[in-house]
Design a protein around this nucleic acid. Structure first.
Lengths: 133, 133
DNA sequence: TTCTGTGCAAATCTTTTGCATGGCA
DNA sequence: TGCCATGCAAAAGATTTGCACAGAA
């Protein structure tokens, strides 16, 4: 909880229960859509409005506290951290953060220095592969 | 024109002027959004309907004739070709297809064999860099 | 106290659907 | 001719906006 508060304190945004709830949700789930955030927060914060979620997602994105990603071409959000890739399991849908292997990053940076990279890898995760055999 | 027709012939979809127009537009622009496709086609095909664009984009995607990509987290479409990365210039907005350098691909495949990759590189293109200096 | 943030409702997109008609094969 | 595709209009979804009130600093 304390770290999430810090993220807001270091920005120009005020600390509100709604914003903390959004960040807490993203911290818990890793990645979530607007609708997922809304539904989950409503469980313990029934008065929150969808418009508030939208407005705050935009504000938090502008402050670079959270980042937008596209999983299966649907918008999701995550707390901003070190640049990393995403592995998405085509069977179970699980999403894993994958550190940018230095070799991959180096090779891209050689051709495109100072660029921001977004890498999505769609495959079958270890667990699903084991179940298959 | 003939190659585009072939794409449809090899699928279960019928050849219609609307579908050819969509493919022609994507061939010309490289990547386009639904709205861009609609506006551009309307210039010479005023009776085409937005619903037809949507239905056909879905049908063409299902047949793997076109692919969806997310540029700046907005959906765009392109004619399906060899897997490749996208370079997006943050200054002028230009989008370039970048062949998957074998080294990059090999390194990812080592960790995630048989996976589909989506790589977006956001940076400043050569032309914009030259203008700056 | 001040000013930003919230929640509601309405407005504005965006996308999908149903259905009668048109047109490819 | 038999279906599939098109276009229209309506419906459904997703996102944004305006405004009065509430709450953080």
């Amino acid at each position: 909880m304390k770290q999430l508060k810090n993220l807001l304190e270091e920005s120009s945004l005020k600390i509100t229960p709604q914003r903390l709830a959004i960040l807490k949700e993203l911290e818990k789930k890793g990645h979530a859509s607007i609708e997922e955030i809304y539904e989950d927060i409503r469980d313990f914060f029934p008065s929150i409005s969808l418009a508030t979620i939208y407005k705050n997602i935009t504000a938090l994105k502008d402050e670079n506290i959270i980042s937008e990603i596209c999983l299966h071409h649907k918008p999701k959000f995550e707390i901003t951290k070190e640049p990393h890739a995403h592995f998405i399991c085509k069977k179970c849908g699980k999403v894993e953060d994958v550190p940018f292997n230095e070799l991959i990053k180096g090779e891209i940076d050689k051709q495109y220095p100072d660029s921001q990279k977004e890498l999505y890898i769609y495959g079958i995760c270890k667990e699903c592969k084991e179940k298959e055999s």
